[in-house]
């Protein structure tokens, strides 16, 4: 019906399954993600959200099923069949992974500038002043005072570290961003600032985002699509407002009715 429906998604999951011994991480998850879309994966802790995220981002190999990525617009490539150098190159250019705990995503022993510059240098940047200028620009984008450029992340607040992590990840202009509960543990105003930042980046750069969250308010404001997980399975998927306002599955209804008004 739509012309661009024939176009290629950026990320495709097909029956992604991860089994830990006799415990199910996630089971038979399938979806397509296109540029400019924000897909929120919601569900209670232990529902398999983070496991799924690891499988999607190539950090973990699924027990069954495939994850495809449209690298260099050459069509969908199975991550499992991708040589490691290419996978690692993707991870530091085309992809971003924003960890729940910024300490997992930052290099704590070097300055904010070096943190932002790392991906640039990994991709061949060899001009100090240019790297520094780019780092400064990104500090501004994530609203950290540029006077903090040479400070260690250790001296930053949790919210600043989280924003620094985002800057460090987005400096190479990735096309796909994975976020694991990014606003978790942040105070409300910092969370709002982060949401605004992500919203802007999605709008300005046509990013595709997979965000794991248990905060339905975050999901409503940020996501275009929602996937509800329970015990490793996807129980419902659809437009974010549809899933939140007219949930079909019993578990989605429970989830939506369990939170304060969002």
């Amino acid at each position: 019906m739509l012309h661009d429906d024939l176009s290629c998604p950026l990320l495709r999951a097909r029956s992604v399954t991860k089994i830990y011994g006799d415990h199910v991480g996630c089971l038979g998850v399938s979806f397509d993600l296109w540029p400019g879309e924000v897909l929120a994966i919601v569900g209670e802790s232990g529902s398999g959200k983070s496991t799924l995220l690891s499988c999607l981002s190539g950090a973990m190999e699924p027990s069954e099923g495939e994850v495809f990525y449209n690298a260099d617009a050459t069509g969908l490539t199975d991550l499992a069949g991708m040589p490691e150098p290419q996978l690692r190159a993707l991870a530091r250019t085309d992809w971003a992974f924003v960890h729940q705990n910024p300490r997992d995503g930052l290099r704590m022993s070097v300055s904010a500038g070096a943190n932002i510059g790392e991906r640039l240098m990994a991709n061949g940047a060899r001009h100090y002043s240019n790297i520094r200028t780019t780092a400064e620009t990104w500090l501004e984008k994530v609203e950290i005072d540029t006077s903090r450029l040479d400070d260690l992340p250790e001296t930053f607040s949790g919210g600043m570290q989280q924003r620094l992590q985002i800057a460090r990840n987005l400096v190479t202009g990735p096309r796909l961003v994975f976020m694991d509960e990014p606003p978790g543990g942040l105070d409300v105003s910092v969370q709002a600032r982060l949401l605004d930042l992500v919203r802007k980046l999605v709008a300005d750069h046509e990013l595709a985002v997979v965000i794991v969250t248990h905060d339905l308010a975050v999901a409503r404001l940020l996501a275009s699509r929602l996937m509800v997980m329970q015990a490793g399975r996807v129980v419902e998927t659809g437009l974010a407002d549809q899933v939140l306002d007219d949930p079909q599955a019993p578990y989605s209804q429970l989830l939506v009715s369990s939170v304060l008004q969002v």
Partner: peptide, 9 residues
């Protein structure tokens, strides 16, 4: 019957 992506468009 449209997919979420179609509805978004």
């Amino acid at each position: 019957t449209a997919s979420p992506r179609q509805i978004l468009d």
